[in-house]
Design a protein around this nucleic acid. Structure first.
Lengths: 339, 339
DNA sequence: GTGAAAGCGCTAACAG
DNA sequence: CTGTTAGCGCTTTCAC
């Protein structure tokens, strides 16, 4: 016993129900919906109207099985304690989710820590996604390799060491060069310090290149005891800061917002006035640096847009179009901390 | 032409392949894997071994279709600019992802902003998930209602206004009472200020109750011009702070970490010494408060565990077991900012 | 204890 | 332009 007009039982109405209600076949209705194949304008409209009335919703799982597509994309985000609270990934993720939603896709979380790729492996082997977005590429490109081996399309947010990978990146190099150059106007090269995180993260490589390149244009080189890279643990951090302060820097650049927050706390504690005693700038902004007083000069990269564009590119690829590399612009925001 | 031993074409090996290789039927192999139905120990072992050798991976989509289960849970997270960078949700999310992975589930992101439930609606109507976790319940319980109407199981992280909902919460009320009581030992009730966010968030209601209750036990009531709730925009914030400072508070409690960060910046700017001039505490911790100098007294709730437990409870429910309400403990960390 | 066969709800040839 | 039919890969009655 089927009811065609209303839906008193709470059974989900399915393709067959609307076909029956219209005296059509399932395939015709299917075509009307997808727009594929030949179909008369009239029937398409009839079908669409009926679908609305009956409140028909296709069963995505059945669709998935027959199309061999999940309409899901995986998003790899770091779960290491170091990055677990970094705002970048969260903002990036919401950008991805938003774009996916528009295209009727969904985003599945894939956590990775250190070199543990088990979650990625599981998701890929279970075929839970049609493609993957890597939000923090590492220089060993282990994730890219795994994905290639499994024939899984992917896009990388940032720079990939793997040749031919589709990447969506912010222009870190130019941005960091510009910020550094700006600082070089009123600070002597040998008085500018740098504190930066894990150099296995390709983003830090890009940033360092920009930093170095700005020095090169004024015919200088970063001094070895002014530059501290690979700083991750609190211990490494405090060692780096005290070593750096001994050199009496006039200006300190932080590799990212998390490092900058820590530096600000430290300088505040030492009663160092910003910018009077030491100027501070950051290669990556976040709400905390903006709210800080004095507000902190930094580069602004739009994490949400980065996410949205990468999702968009990936889905284009899944639809058979070729993905393209995208480089997003940056904005340099001079704020009080360097004035 | 099928190859049973190796897999030179990169076609995925499927149930039928291992059945053929063993001279069994698909159903037997299926039973061996699931453990359901009667099956001899011997064949089960033969099957398991063969599966390992052939590297068989079940197609989760096909499994989904026949079981009418997706093995996905949806996670609702806020995308409002106000909360988009709050570390809580990110940490919570990774806790969920980790627990899901263990149980062979995956987590799908559902973004919500303001009262826009369209993403939630889409995911639910598309049946992309078996259940949903709400990470920030609102007092209008619109999300819970939507889920109920669609017969979708869910668990709420925090307190739900909907009767009968399964909740996993931190003990905010007791925690905030304890922190407030501690502060009441060395500060006069009328000298303690409070700045708190949106009171539509049930978590803020719980926290306020604890705050009020501590006052009650010393026979006092929070003074109206010492308490500022519903603070969200930067403008509201600065108004609240200046109004509060006029009352010359000895101690200020912040409703959460984001508010506390802003307050610290403001006080730092005003050259207010912490804790000498004003003591500061927060109802929620985050890495920034820990790194701040002086470190900030605050309550510690384990966001990762909250996520993991809620995922665990939800999946239990999906497996037909009854979910239970869980209340997680807190930790009060007295740090330098109130000494 | 095991096998055969009928679904799960949709898409995509292939006919007409 | 539309209908018929055969899958997609797994689970699950129902026989044996």
């Amino acid at each position: 016993m089927k009811t065609t007009t209303v839906n008193p039982g709470n059974k989900k109405v399915q393709l067959e129900d609307v076909a029956l209600a219209l005296g059509l076949s399932k395939s015709t209705v299917s075509r009307a919906i997808s727009g594929k194949g030949r179909i008369s304008t009239e029937t398409r409209e009839r079908v669409n109207e009926c679908i609305r009335e009956m409140n028909y919703r296709p069963n995505m799982i059945a669709k998935s099985l027959s199309e061999s597509r999940t309409y899901n994309v995986g998003v790899v985000i770091p779960m290491d304690s170091n990055d677990a609270e970094a705002p970048f990934f969260q903002t990036c993720l919401t950008g991805i989710a938003r774009e996916c939603a528009v295209r009727n896709y969904d985003a599945i979380i894939i956590g990775t820590e250190k070199d543990d790729l088990s979650q990625l492996k599981r998701v890929v082997e279970n075929r839970k996604v049609d493609g993957v977005i890597i939000t923090r590429p590492l220089s060993d490109n282990s994730m890219e390799t795994l994905l290639c081996e499994n024939g899984m399309p992917f896009v990388v947010i940032g720079r990939s060491m793997l040749n031919g990978a589709i990447t969506v990146d912010s222009n870190h190099k130019d941005g960091c060069r510009e910020l550094t150059s700006y600082l070089l106007i009123s600070n002597q090269p040998e008085k500018i310090g740098l504190i930066m995180g894990n150099m296995d993260h390709t983003v830090n490589k890009s940033r360092y290149e920009g930093f170095e390149s700005a020095f090169a244009t004024v015919g200088a080189k970063p001094a070895i005891d002014m530059v501290y890279t690979g700083i991750e643990s609190p211990l490494q951090f405090s060692k780096a800061v005290s070593a750096l302060l001994k050199q009496e820097p006039r200006c300190i650049i932080c590799g990212d917002d998390m490092i900058c927050m820590k530096l600000l706390a430290e300088l505040n504690n030492l009663l160092t006035a910003i910018p009077e005693d030491i100027r501070v700038a950051s290669f990556y902004d976040s709400v905390h640096l903006d709210n800080y007083i004095p507000s902190v000069t930094s580069l602004i990269f739009d994490a949400g847009k980065l996410g949205a564009v990468s999702a968009s590119e990936l889905i284009e690829m899944l639809d058979g179009n070729s993905g393209k590399n995208v480089m997003l612009d940056f904005q340099l925001l001079i704020r009080k901390s360097t004035m």
